[in-house]
Design a protein around this nucleic acid. Structure first.
Length: 819
RNA sequence: GGGCUCGUAGUUUAGCGGCUAUAACGUCCCGUUGACGUCGGGAAGGCCCUCGGUUCGAAUCCGAGCGGGCCCACCA
């Protein structure tokens, strides 16, 4: 294949050059995964974003950039990088997005129309994401793109269902479950979110014979659902109530009065009303004491005729009216304003209700210990994120309900026999199937042909939790064997309880193994004041806007400035610093390239006699290589970036470039050998520096590589070139000591000139007082030192003088220039 | 209420047992240096949240507290 050569430019302009290099990578298949390669595979379980956004904010860009650094590093390390992109375009998030955008809801449209709309939006958002990822310079292999609504992903999710069913992990129950009255579907514990709600504690009178019993409740609208009163067995106030019945006010029927240890004597009046179902406690007691069912809530959140004259009202409305009615009947004796946290559905903010529904669950509560153990076999970066996982698993209260009474999701591969009730599963090789659209092949074993499809779809996490299996094309024609565990799962910390957890559940149940070797967990990008970004708050900073204004490399520079796992406030000034760094890299390279025109890298290796300042900086460089490599290996890209930046700007540019100039410009004075030594050093310095920077700032480093190094370093792109090796023989402590001393003297001279307010070019007379060892050192770099400090004269005094870091005293005089 | 995490110059941060405690941005002063003014040099700026403890020695380790962020529990 012929390499396309982009046109070389004199100046580097990210607005023009970044898209050019992106095209270059694309045209030359730089990031293509090679299934036939013998190289070690490094596979990334890329987070498939929900197809439910018009724009992505800088936090998304930050998170995705952080593991993109890793992909580029591993590629340069010689790995065969499997870096896919996926879109999580099935399920409730997409449905909600569509409902909001078109102001519709599932009950007001047909399934077919709704699905069509979802698919259409899915495609649009896919395009938005692809644009962003391309603009950021993402090194994904787009041929590996997957959609969770695709046939392949459906097949995997259905295969997963059937496998779990076979393994006895799948259960169909009609246990009361959490329900969203807006989305009108069952939901899982992981879909909850907490918000503080202002409400009232209402003290309401129940009658027990002639006695008034006062119960405190926040949910008077559930009075018609009341099935019992409870108090603590040791509560003296209510001892004599045992075995008696109480009359429910307004609705006028009797409920038993029972005792249970779990009732808190201190809370409210110590008397508790149990309904079907107000909360989890109600469900427990209902089950434990086999209480009556008085289901008063409809699926859409209105009350049914058990509510008598309040029938048809929504809960909030009924609450108001029932309180008014109680007041009128003098049955409400007190009302206290409170604020309490309430579980709401994270997709729509609706308060969670409970509903008895036939649904599929994956049993997890009986395997908590195993699920914690298996997570220990994954390397967590940063490690403390594992604690969050453990706490979540320990505190789980519900099995994983995966049924959703929705349209746009992966259908269950399930039919039921109407006569015997048997669950009928398809043949695995026929997957994916859609029982809503196609008939079951064959009859039930009982002989019946009366077969009903399952109409629900699966929870969106049912698919995304299979992302490793989707990437491995489980059950597909091109199934990748030995692909799992994947090398890396990158994700943000807010979805540990969902995506990380569910993926581990699946992997453990399917294979008893881990889904990946490492997991790296990013923090959140925040607004400049450390606040969470949201559209409603108006502090939403769109990633593309920043890239457009500055550049992708500058954006990535910002994204690399925080430790893995930490939240990062968006600071425009940091992006600006990135922009300046791009400029500095280009200019330092321009200078270097001019002086490297006549340099033969291949020969130089043998003949060069390095000078002490060359040895000094090369020693530093090789320490840096070691540090960067070790850092990237444990996902500490921010450390690598910071140290490289410091070295490049503060040591390479500020000192070495100044030191070597005299040798480069004046070979007649300094000798050809001294010049070649400087060239050799410069060549290695620059090439190594841009390689170390390449994962973070891929565009500018590619531009520099192509402008000079590609032909010599012999790779099509810097991003498939070899990551630098830290070579021990370059570590030279003696040279470092000398170099540091020289640098310190240069610093002293600069300070002197600055205080005298003269140009750094101004000639001086330099007298250095130091010991013999130091004198020897300085003499070994004498010409470089004189040139850099523009010292017309340099002499040594005698004796050791204690001053500054190296205990050397320097006296400096300005030399009057002859006109 | 429980857990995790963070608290260092005006801002964002490095350091995580011993240096006069990093650096960048901002501020102030200076510099027509042949890569770069998107630059170079210099300066000012810090009770390293508070209080205890461990230690010869604490920004760093431990305990308590205060204050942010996140996660979870709390709906009677």
């Amino acid at each position: 294949m012929e390499t396309k050569e982009p046109q070389k430019t004199e100046n580097y302009d990210p607005k023009v050059d970044e898209p050019k290099w992106q095209e270059f990578w694309h045209d030359n298949n730089i990031f293509k995964f090679d299934p036939n390669s013998k190289k070690e595979i490094y596979s990334i379980d890329t987070p498939p974003p929900y197809a439910s956004a018009d724009h992505l904010h800088v936090g998304h860009g930050m998170h995705y950039s952080q593991f993109e650094f890793v992909a580029r590093f591993q590629r340069m390390r010689g790995k065969n990088v499997f870096f896919p992109m996926g879109y999580d375009d099935n399920g409730l998030p997409t449905e909600r997005y569509v409902e909001k955008k078109y102001n519709i809801n599932k009950s007001k449209t047909t399934r077919a129309d709704f699905i069509k709309l979802c698919l259409q939006e899915t495609e649009k958002t896919g395009k938005t994401y692809q644009d962003l990822f391309n603009q950021l310079g993402f090194s994904v292999d787009w041929d590996l793109l997957f959609h969770t609504i695709s046939d392949d992903a459906r097949r995997v999710a259905q295969l997963s269902f059937i496998d779990l069913h076979e393994k006895g992990r799948m259960e169909r129950t009609d246990n009361p479950t959490s329900w969203c009255t807006t989305c009108q579907t069952t939901i899982a514990q992981a879909d909850f979110e907490n918000t503080d709600v202002k409400s009232h504690f209402n003290d309401i009178i129940f009658k027990c014979g002639d006695q008034d019993l006062i119960i405190a409740t926040t949910r008077p609208e559930l009075l018609p659902a009341c099935v019992a009163l409870f108090h603590h067995p040791d509560d003296k106030r209510y001892k004599e109530l045992k075995g008696k019945k109480a009359r429910v006010p307004l609705f006028d029927y009797e409920v038993p009065i029972l005792t249970d240890e779990s009732v808190d004597i201190e809370t409210g009046t110590g008397l508790m009303m149990v309904c079907t179902f107000g909360d989890k406690e109600d469900i427990e007691k209902w089950r434990k004491y086999k209480l009556d069912s008085r289901i008063v809530l409809n699926e859409n959140g209105t009350l049914n005729d058990l509510a008598r004259r309040f029938v048809g009202m929504k809960t909030k409305e009924a609450r108001k009216d029932i309180i008014a009615a109680l007041q009128a009947a003098k049955l409400l004796i007190n009302q206290k304003e409170i604020s309490h946290p309430v579980n709401v559905h994270e997709r729509c903010g609706t308060e969670i209700e409970f509903m008895q529904k036939q649904q599929w669950q994956i049993k997890i509560l009986d395997k908590k210990e195993d699920l914690i153990k298996i997570a220990n076999k994954v390397n967590w970066y940063p490690e403390h994120m594992k604690t969050r996982y453990e706490h979540w698993v320990k505190n789980l209260q519900w099995d994983w309900g995966i049924s959703r009474q929705r349209y746009y999701g992966v259908p269950f591969p399930v039919w039921y026999c109407k006569s015997c009730g048997k669950v009928l599963l398809p043949d695995k090789k026929d997957l994916p199937v859609d029982p809503r659209e196609q008939a079951y092949k064959g009859n039930c074993s009982c002989g019946s042909t009366d077969i009903l499809p399952e109409m629900d779809v699966m929870d969106t996490w049912m698919t995304s939790s299979c992302s490793p299996q989707i990437n491995a094309d489980w059950g597909g024609a091109g199934e990748r064997k030995n692909f799992i565990p994947m090398s890396l799962r990158p994700q943000a910390h807010d979805i540990i309880r969902t995506w990380a957890f569910y993926t581990i559940v699946k992997s453990y149940y399917h294979t008893k193994g881990v889904p990946w070797k490492d997991i790296m967990i990013s923090g959140h990008g925040q607004d400049p004041h450390g606040q969470k970004m949201s559209k409603s708050k108006g502090n939403f900073i769109i990633a593309q806007d920043v890239i457009k204004k500055y550049s992708a490399d500058a954006f990535r520079f910002w994204a690399a400035s925080v430790k893995l796992g930490d939240d990062l406030p968006y600071q425009e000034k940091d992006v600006l610093t990135g922009q300046k760094t791009i400029n500095k890299l280009w200019n330092a390279s321009k200078f270097s390239m001019i002086h490297l025109q006549d340099f033969d890298a291949a020969l130089a290796d043998k003949i060069v006699h390095l000078q002490v300042m060359d040895k000094w900086i090369l020693s530093r460089l090789h320490r840096l290589i070691k540090l960067c490599t070790d850092s990237f290996d444990v996902y500490e890209y921010s450390k690598a970036k910071m140290e490289t930046e410091k070295f490049f700007w503060g040591t390479f540019c500020d000192y070495y470039l100044e030191i070597c100039k005299d040798r480069l410009y004046n070979p007649d004075k300094r000798g050809q050998e001294a010049r070649v030594a400087a060239q050799f050093t410069l060549y290695n310095l620059l090439l190594t520096t841009i390689k170390l920077t390449a994962p973070i700032m891929p565009h500018i480093t590619e531009a520099i590589y192509q402008a000079y190094f590609a032909a010599k370093d012999c790779h099509k792109s810097i991003h498939v070139s070899h990551w630098p090796e830290a070579v021990k023989s370059f570590i030279d402590e003696d040279a470092e000591k000398t170099g540091d001393l020289v640098v310190e003297i240069i610093g002293a001279v600069r300070k002197f000139k600055s205080e005298k307010q003269v140009s750094l070019k101004k000639p001086i007379k330099l007298v250095i007082e130091c010991d013999k060892d130091q004198q020897k050192r300085i003499e070994s770099a004498l010409d470089d030192l004189k040139a850099t400090t523009t010292a017309a004269e340099l002499t040594f005094g005698n004796g050791t003088i204690e001053l500054e870091n190296s205990k050397v005293k320097v006296s400096i005089e300005l030399v009057e220039e002859k006109q």
